[in-house]
Write a protein that binds this DNA or RNA. Structure first.
Lengths: 200, 200
DNA sequence: ATCTCCGGGTGACAAGTGTCACCCAAGGGC
DNA sequence: GCCCTTGGGTGACACTTGTCACCCGGAGAT
């Protein structure tokens, strides 16, 4: 019997997946979590074989949870299950050593099969990921990311400078550099593009 | 037997809901669509009793579909099923005469019940909507919305002016007005806020 | 010990942004 | 006929943005 935890913030989808997986003879959903922090606690307590993990959840993202599980050398395997085929997310997930990365666009019947295959030591990845995203890695340095995040909140160059203890001019240099790395003409486009790719 | 169509772009959720609803004796899922245009065609062809409708879908949003069904005086009832409790969406849905508006955060078991109640002539609305959103109506005029949308794509005042056949100065007046209606300091914040509220 | 790279900084310029006061024409209401 | 609102416009001002050329000091490589 494979013991499963589900971490997913949309109650509807979470409940629906749990009901369906429970119908399978060899699968058992032992716990459900509605956010990342809860998921981590649940896995600690229940020691399931595998966890289906959404990425964008309140309190702690699925990627953070996966990273922390890796740190603690937890036995629980992780299958990321998300809407987004953002290259940045995928890259981070792989580095966190997850066993699977599936898109919510996959048909339901693939789900149980994927879980079984992962339990047999295989890796499961939705094909879109390999094509679309690989090798399109994050061109932004950590500092540039900091700047861009704040710009995304609508902060002005001066405000960003204050938040980051930099000078006003330096911030503008960073932004200028970001714009030409991303090949766009304004902060707004840069923020949109970076968010879209999961580069934050 | 209640005949149901499901319009939802996430295949996983769509499939899961279909399987679960089909387990109920009095419900039958007769069709599934992955985008708005497909949904409209499907409803035309199959004449189901009720349609579960996501909002943010490719090609045509669930709100557009609902509006067009109303225009054609279609018999099919509509239950909106979405992640977003955006006031603007809810308002539009009500105007389009939908019978239900549920959040994907609802537990699964509510779903079948909601469908039955709607078929009995009742209205079904997730409680969050009433509180959070009502009476927080869109403060933007149609023209202001046009301007803000383009600004959201990263267009400059001049570009927006050209797209809308306005003068550069007028565009800036609009933006200035938008900023103080929305009580924010920059276009970026304005775009974020408006998108978040569903005011587009 | 020198060289080069890198994070950070400066100053100047052109263009874009936000604000404000004010203008004009077309309707609507009365 | 008059008043008021509405959509659009102008011009000026101060500030912010984006770009560019160039400077500085510390760390690594050789």
């Amino acid at each position: 019997m494979i013991r499963i935890c589900i971490a997913e913030d949309q109650r509807l989808l979470r409940g629906a997946m749990a009901s369906l997986l429970d119908l399978e003879d060899d699968l058992e959903v032992v716990g459900e979590a509605g956010d990342g922090a809860e998921a981590l606690a649940l896995i600690d307590r229940l020691q399931p074989d595998v966890c289906l993990m959404d990425i964008e959840m309140p309190r702690k993202s699925g990627l953070e949870v996966a990273e922390q599980l890796k740190e603690r050398r937890a036995a629980c395997k992780v299958i990321i299950l998300t809407t987004f085929s953002r290259p940045g997310y995928f890259e981070r997930a792989v580095k966190a050593g997850v066993q699977g990365y599936l898109l919510k666009d996959e048909p339901v019947d693939k789900l149980a099969e994927a879980i079984r295959r992962v339990m047999n030591g295989r890796r499961e990845v939705s094909p879109e990921l390999i094509f679309g995203s690989l090798q399109e890695e994050n061109p932004l340095t950590p500092r540039e990311r900091d700047v861009l995040k704040l710009a995304g909140d609508g902060q002005t160059a001066n405000e960003i400078a204050a938040s980051l203890h930099l000078s006003h001019g330096t911030v503008r240099n960073y932004i200028s550099e970001i714009l030409n790395k991303l090949e766009v003409k304004s902060r707004i486009e840069a923020v949109r593009l970076a968010e879209d790719k999961g580069w934050l």
